[in-house]
């Protein structure tokens, strides 16, 4: 189900559903980035949903939804690096340094890359023992992702505003829960 936007995008790139428009590279970068961020937001929303619905098994969805977010953002980054910048490493480095919102986005992507690389079956124990590090990285990645999204637009877009508010509320909630637990 989470792959539906991906399949729609694939169909569009094959010319169906009126195609990708006049700037196909931009369309793919925007769509994959947006869906990656949406799934990342969903990952963070799972904890309060499980908490208030008292169904702790919802928390188990964290890993697949998070990996789905990573899958979209990997596509997002690869389309930027390999297509938009034609895979030229020197050009990519200069572009990232010159473009503040790319530094932020790249930072978020590295956080997720770290999380995704320890999510394999063989590292399951390590993954389970370091839950707080993992969720810290996911939170950091989401904050950086929202910042990156907010910063690339010419004017404030409603969607980035909604995500900024959501992320702030989630972080405050998270801190409140953990201080309640420890006291």
């Amino acid at each position: 189900m989470m792959l539906v936007p991906y399949f729609l995008l694939t169909l569009k790139s094959l010319g169906y559903l009126s195609g990708l428009g006049a700037n196909p590279v931009e369309t793919i970068i925007h769509e994959t980035g947006l869906w990656g961020l949406r799934f990342l937001m969903l990952t963070l929303l799972l904890t309060p949903i499980a908490y208030y619905s008292k169904i702790p098994s919802i928390n188990k969805l964290g890993k697949p939804v998070g990996l789905m977010a990573f899958f979209y953002l990997l596509n997002h980054f690869l389309t930027y690096a390999m297509i938009d910048q034609a895979g030229d490493l020197g050009v990519i480095i200069v572009d990232i340094i010159e473009t503040p919102y790319l530094i932020v986005g790249w930072g978020g992507f590295l956080c997720l890359l770290g999380v995704a690389s320890v999510s394999f079956k063989r590292l399951e124990n390590w993954f389970n023992q370091n839950r707080s590090t993992i969720s810290g990285l996911v939170y950091t990645a989401t904050v950086l992702g929202v910042w990156h999204f907010y910063w690339q637009a010419k004017v404030i877009e409603i969607e980035s505003l909604i995500y900024s508010i959501m992320v702030t509320v989630l972080i405050v909630w998270r801190f409140k829960i953990s201080t309640n637990r420890s006291s």
């Binding site: 700037n23 590279v25 931009e26 938009d84 010159e98 473009t99 919102y101 910063w151 690339q152």
Partner: peptide, 10 residues
């Protein structure tokens, strides 16, 4: 916030 050195021709 971004470079103006290059452009993408639609």
């Amino acid at each position: 916030r971004w470079s103006q050195a290059r452009e993408r021709r639609i």
